[in-house]
């Protein structure tokens, strides 16, 4: 097996990087801290390249769509992406032309697309949010209480809803929330330890 194909290499790199970053936190060794800092900077630079790889894949995919299906929309998507890149890099993202593009085209589009889920929440509330069991009833009651306490109309219509809603959020749901937070962190650490020990090969050594 050639050196390139050996799966031990990326695992060793990952284990070394992970161990170095953790070790630098628990010691006050200056050279270890400096090495960890450099490695973090490397991570930032590689992440930048990874973003470019994303564009590359996107343009390649849509390019095929344009050729195969003669899709106008794919053409518009690619042309607008390339146009934005040209303005942003040739001038500057802080230039007035780029600001015009982002504030007058990207901003309303971004906000409008984001509103979709707001609409879908209404139909989900109507069609699926039903008290079929005790658990579903608890979810439903808690959701309604939090929504009522979050809006001034709720305080106006039901004067006791604010303290009750705050109590629900700050005390009653805190236990479940905190339990979740700790369980999530334990899970993340276990995944990390598996990475250090070379058991976690999903991302680097398929």
């Amino acid at each position: 097996m050639s050196l390139i194909n050996r799966r031990e290499i990326p695992i060793a790199i990952g284990v070394a990087a992970c161990t170095l970053v953790i070790a630098s936190y628990f010691t006050d060794n200056a050279s270890l801290a400096s090495a960890s800092g450099s490695l973090q900077l490397w991570g930032i630079i590689i992440a930048g390249f990874a973003t470019l790889l994303g564009l590359f894949s996107y343009v390649a995919y849509n390019g095929r769509q344009i050729v195969k299906k003669r899709s106008v929309y794919s053409g518009v998507a690619v042309a607008s992406a390339l146009g934005t890149i040209a303005i942003g890099l040739a001038l500057s993202p802080s230039s007035s032309q780029y600001s015009w593009l982002t504030s007058n085209i990207l901003t309303p589009l971004s906000m409008s697309v984001g509103s979709f889920i707001g609409f879908f929440i209404v139909s989900a509330a109507f069609r699926t949010f039903r008290a079929r069991s005790l658990e579903a009833g608890i979810v439903l009651a808690a959701a309604a209480m939090i929504m009522l306490k979050n809006m001034p109309v709720g305080e106006y219509l039901l004067p006791g809803v604010l303290p009750l809603g705050n109590w629900l959020n700050d005390i009653v749901s805190l236990g479940g929330n905190r339990g979740f937070t700790i369980a999530f962190a334990v899970g993340a650490i276990i995944a990390g330890v598996r990475q250090i020990l070379g058991f976690e090969r999903g991302r680097v050594a398929k």
Binding site: V122, A125, F126, T128, R130, M151, P152, V153
Partner: peptide
């Protein structure tokens, strides 16, 4: 926007109630 937000949340609550009435 806070009044509009109130109205929006009232609508969601109203549809939850309507959905459960139908159910």
């Amino acid at each position: 926007g806070i009044d509009a937000l109130s109205m929006g949340q009232l609508v969601v609550i109203a549809f939850i109630v309507l959905g459960n009435v139908a159910f």
